[in-house]
Amino acid sequence: MSETFVAEHALEYPGGYTRSVGPVIGRFLTGLRDGRIEGVRARDGRVIVPPTEYDPVTSDEIGGDDGDWVDVGPAGRVVTWSWVANPRVGKHPLDRPFAFALIRLDGADTALLHAVDCGSPDGIVTGARVAPRWRAERVGKITDIECFTVLADGEQPVAATPRHVAADGAGDADGTDEGAVTSMNSAFRLEYRIPAGAATRRYLNGLAEGRIVGGRAPSSTEVYAASRGTDPKTGEPTSIEVEISDAGCVTTYCVVNIPGLSELAPEIPYVSAQILLDGADNMMFGLIRGCPVEDVHMGMRVKAKWADELKPDHRSILHWEPTGEPDAPYEHYKDNL
């Protein structure tokens, strides 16, 4: 199948989500920023790391009192691990093969997930002693620990370096003057390659030939422009291809005064309209141009303005223009509002 019919799509929120972390996760992240790891004591005495706002057994609120908090680690033992032979660049913590491990830090009763930089699967075993490799630049995120490393017999963990020191040597080395971490930015990007599907491909192929192709189900007389493949009333496949006119009438519309919404309408104001094409029973969405916006009205006859170069792409129809024909009577489109 031609790549023409595959849409490159990314699910991404510019700048990422800003999440409020709350007092408990916030205190944990503040600790990471300052180069230490804290856990919270549950009602049964177990120390939970990373801490939760609730007791995992009783759901009681925990972490509200200073007395609930316990310094843990920084070293601990591997409870279980898996090997990542092909790291996901830009997502995984390390760009070379590494282990993911659940790590029970000294003084903790639950395990923390993190990466272990140990070269090969031979470099790690369950029960191995590991310690964090801290980043110098820490911001209050789990990734302030770059990864863990395996400790040799008798080797001691390396403490976090002071986060930042002013040029004159004065100022606060541990960053505690910045207050607690209260939020974090959570950015992600997921990529997709979305094939058009059979019905949309027929429609797009039609556009490349300057035609508007619709579909109809065998048991129905209703014709759907740009069908997604079924008659939405019955769920029956629109297996019969029907050519539809590139002229019709405006049913309902709105005047857009917000800039930047459509690449096809660089100037505001413009009109977005639902258009009932001759020979179709559903509406197409389109922009109305070629007349002052205040002249656009329900029932106005319009025709597609095709691009000079036609492609299997919705942009082959630039916009819709008035034809000057008499208006369609209300009866014609009253069931399509």
Partner: peptide, 29 residues
């Protein structure tokens, strides 16, 4: 990778363990 989106967004998602990475932790345990 999509299944990673169901993990804790604070302490797990930033590390991007895939569904298989997590399953392998359970397999070894």
């Amino acid at each position: 990778e999509i299944l990673t989106m169901q993990t804790d967004p604070y302490n797990v998602l930033p590390l991007w363990p895939s569904a298989t990475d997590m399953a392998a932790l359970q397999a070894r345990a």
